[in-house]
Nucleic acid binder design. Structure first.
Length: 329
DNA sequence: AATGGTATTTTGCCTGA
DNA sequence: TCAGGCGAAATACCATT
């Protein structure tokens, strides 16, 4: 499958990029800008270090407002007294912001002397292991980040420990299958969580989960589809019955009411009436039909409010429930 | 006040270019 | 990826009990 080849690609990529030079050997002199003549009067320009501007000496035109030297500071100084800020500029392009150690290539030592064959072999081995360590670390960090994100969302949604465990496994599998390539880890983590939630029949909607995630809905749904497809998860469509117990308890309904509503949902499901309908709406309709049968006196509006469903929806569905009930007797 | 009926609008999903 | 078609749901309004 392409995902496996993809994972190989990634490793290859990391190896090649890490061999690119991470810092400039020759810092660009910052005096370049100051020696450019003024575009207005062609006069001499001068750098004002206090204000961080380049101004024209003749007409005082501010030629450039930002003088940012991103090169290593030490090269600009005559003395080497202050080395605190020496280092390559950081970048977000690499997982470690470009701060990891890279063992350079070549057969010479730091002084430019040729190394012995024995030493060259040792250096090659070191390079290999260093690369392995760095890439391995990157994977681990990504995983850790995703897992902590997963945990945060699970807490916000008050999900059980078992769900979190399962979601973590799903996330790890998705991650190693390469599903996350090209998208954010949050998306994969959210997708893994939602897939687990769905599979266990927990009545949470995409909105519920998306609300706790930092990512937008579109990439969430995309990631979700890919996770399900890549991992071959078998996810049954949302079941109205899953929504019933929570709804009944939120309305302070009796056990009998809950049982009645569940059996109504069951009957209706047998006729495929529920296909393509809001599971929540059907659950609400079932509860309403159940109150009529059990005489519990809940109104359409009460149930609708609690289920986040309009009364019209309840009306359109509950007759089907009652019919199923009549046939049952 | 709760419910039922209905016309209209909104919304979400699917499909084909 | 986008427009457009389509069914479902919401919204609005009125009638009935």
């Amino acid at each position: 499958m392409w995902a496996v080849g993809g994972a190989g690609d990634k490793q290859y990529m990391s190896q090649t990029t890490s061999q690119q030079p991470r810092h400039r050997t020759e810092p660009e002199p910052t005096t370049d800008d100051t020696e450019r003549p003024c575009p207005e009067c062609n006069g001499r320009t001068r750098e004002d270090p206090k204000r961080g501007e380049i101004v024209c000496e003749d007409c005082s035109l501010v030629v450039s407002e930002t003088v940012l030297d991103r090169g290593p500071e030490r090269h600009d100084r005559d003395d080497d007294s202050d080395r605190r800020r020496v280092g390559a500029p950081t970048t977000k392009r690499f997982h470690d912001e470009g701060l990891s150690t890279v063992i350079g290539g070549g057969d010479c030592d730091a002084n430019g002397n040729r190394m012995s064959a024995r030493k060259q072999r040792r250096m090659r081995r070191l390079r290999t292991w260093n690369t392995r360590y760095v890439t391995q670390n990157a994977r681990e960090r990504a995983l850790q980040f995703g897992l902590s994100e997963l945990d945060r969302m699970a807490s916000a949604l008050e999900l059980s420990e078992t769900i979190r465990e399962t979601a973590s496994v799903v996330f790890r599998r998705a991650h190693s299958a390469g599903v996350q390539r090209g998208r954010s880890l949050e998306a994969t983590a959210t997708a893994a969580l939602f897939a687990t939630v769905r599979r266990d029949g927990i009545p949470l909607t995409i909105e519920d989960v998306a609300a706790t995630s930092r990512i937008d809905r579109e990439s969430f749904e995309r990631a979700y589809r890919d996770v399900v497809r890549e991992l071959g998860l078998e996810i049954s469509p949302p079941d109205p019955a899953d929504h019933v117990p929570g709804l009944v308890s939120a309305l302070d309904g009796s056990d009998a009411l809950c049982q009645r509503a569940l059996s109504l949902v069951d009957r209706v499901k047998a006729t495929d009436y529920h296909v393509g309908k809001h599971p929540n709406g059907l659950a609400a309709a079932a509860v309403y039909a159940a109150t009529l049968i059990e005489d519990e006196g809940l109104t359409q509006a009460e149930i609708g409010d609690e289920a986040d469903i309009s009364v019209v929806t309840i009306r359109t569905h509950y007759t089907a429930m009652l019919e199923a009930w009549r046939e049952d007797r």
